[in-house]
Simulated scan of single mutants.
Amino acid sequence: MPSHHRRITLKDLAHELGVSTASVSNAFNRPDQLSSTLRSHILSEAKRLGYQGPDARARSLRTGRSRIIAVVLAETLTYSLNDAVSSELLSGVAEVLDAHGHTLLLLSGRQPGSDHHPGSASMADGFIVYGLMPSDHLLSDLPPQSPLVAVDFHVEGRPTVHIDNEPACYAIADHALAQRPKRIGILCLRLTATPHNGPLTDQQEWLSAERTITRSRLDGFYRAIDQHGIPRDQVPLWNIEENIHSVCAPVIEAILDLPDDERPDLLLCMSDRIALTALTLAEQRGIRVPEDLRLTGFDGIEEGQYRAPRLTTVRQNSSEKGRMAARMILGLDEPTASRLATTLMIGESCP
Rank of each mutant, 00 (worst) to 15 (best):
T21F: 10
A278I: 14
D202T: 05
I69F: 05
A209S: 13
S349E: 02
V149Y: 03
L207Y: 04
I172P: 10
L268R: 00
D265L: 00
I69A: 02
Y79L: 12
W238L: 05
L49I: 13
A193P: 05
L43C: 14
I213C: 07
L177T: 04
R288A: 11
E283H: 14
R183I: 03
S349Q: 08
D292S: 12
I255Q: 00
A341Y: 08
R180C: 01
A168L: 07
P118R: 06
D226A: 12
S216C: 10
G331K: 04
T280N: 09
I186W: 02
L106P: 10
S146A: 15
E242Q: 09
N29T: 10
L61S: 15
P259T: 02
S36Y: 03
S135P: 14
A70E: 07
D141V: 10
S318E: 07
R39D: 03
Q52D: 11
S86I: 05
V235E: 05
I329G: 01
R323N: 00
Q316N: 14
I252F: 00
A150M: 07
L276V: 06
D265A: 01
L344A: 13
E253Y: 01
K11G: 10
L293I: 01
R57C: 07
D233N: 06
I301L: 12
L104N: 02
P112T: 10
G101T: 01
V129G: 06
S140T: 13
S120N: 13
E348K: 08
G322C: 09
I240S: 02
P118N: 08
L73Y: 04
L10Q: 12
I225V: 15
G101K: 03
D272T: 09
A56N: 13
I186K: 01
S319H: 14
I68C: 12
E334L: 09
G113K: 14
L191N: 00
T296N: 03
N317E: 08
L138M: 11
V314N: 08
I240R: 04
I301M: 15
I8S: 06
M1D: 00
T313G: 05
L43P: 12
T78V: 09
L43F: 10
G126I: 10
L218T: 05
H5G: 03
K182I: 12
L258C: 03
Q316F: 13
A278W: 04
R232K: 10
I213D: 09
A56L: 15
Q179V: 09
S20K: 04
Y79V: 12
S120M: 14
P335Y: 03
I8R: 11
G198K: 04
P167K: 10
R180Q: 05
R7K: 13
A308K: 15
G300T: 09
V161E: 00
P290N: 01
D233V: 01
E253A: 07
L344I: 11
I274Q: 14
V19H: 05
H4L: 14
G286S: 15
L200E: 01
R223M: 13
D152N: 15
